[in-house]
Amino acid sequence: MSGDRVTKVLLFISSLTILLLSAGIVISLFGGALPAFREFGFRFIISSAWNPTAGSEEYGAMSFIAGTVITSILALIICIPMAFSTSLFIAEYYNGTRTSGILRSLVDLLAGIPSIVYGFWGFYALRPLMVATGLTDQGFGVFTASLVLAIMIVPYATSLSAEIISMVPAELKEAAYSLGATRREVIFSVVIPSARSGIIASFILALGRALGETMAVTMLIGNANVIPKGLFAPGNTMASVIANQFGEASGLKMSALIAIGLLLFLITALVNYLGKLIIKRFA
C-alpha cells in the first residue's frame, strides 16, 4: 500500500472510532433510560416528583431541569459583563502591553483550576459571605451556585472573546481612526460589530459548560430535589443529582438518573445548535 492510502485508512479508522463511541454513548443512554420512560412516559419530563420510597416510587426530571437552566442562565448573566469587559481590555484597550499579558495568563490560570477547588472555595469562602448578607440561612442555594459557576465560565468566555476581538483586522480600525474616531468610538462602532457573532458564540460555549458543570454546583446548590422557590433557595441540577445519587441507585431510580443524563445531553446539544443558528444569522 502506498503511504497515501495508509494515511487515508488510518484517518478513516480514527474518525470511525469517534463516531462509534458517540453512537455507543447515545445508545446506552437510550437503553438505560427506557424503563423510566416506559413507566412514567412524557410525565417524567414535566413532573417534579422525586420519591424513592419502595412501593410508591415516582420520579420526574422537572426540578433538575429547572435547577440546571436557572443556575446556568443566571451564571451567564453574571458572566457577560465580567467576560465582555475583560476581553475588551485584554484584546483591544491594553493589547500588546505587559498588563494585558499578565491578565491573559491569569485568565488562562482560572480556566485551569479544577472544578472541585472552585467548589471548595465556594463552600468555605463564598457561603459564609452569603450567610452574612442575611439573604439565606445556610448560604446554599441557586444564587451561590450561580456565582461560582459564573466565575468558572468567565475564563472560557473571556479568552474566546479576546481571541475574536483581536482578530478584527487592523485595517478596519485604522480606517475608523483615520476618520477622526476616538478609541471608544472605534471599539463600539467597528470592533464590537465586527466581532459580534464570535462574541455571541463564546458566550454560548460558556453556557454549554455551565449546563454540564457538576462538582462545584453540587457542593453549593443545597441538593434539594424541588423546583427552586427563589434565587436564594436551594435546588438541584441534572448533573448534581446524578453525581449525588448514582452510587446507591438501582432499578427504576437508576433508569431515572440515566434518563436525566440523556435529557441533559439533549439540552446541551440544543444549546449548541441554537448557538450555531445565531452565529449564522449574524455572520
Binding site: E174, A175, A176
Partner: peptide, 12 residues
C-alpha cells in the same frame, strides 16, 4: 483623510 492599500469599507 486617508485611503488604504486594500479597500476597507466597514463590513457592518
Amino acid at each position: 483623510g486617508m485611503v488604504f492599500q486594500r479597500p476597507n469599507p466597514f463590513p457592518n
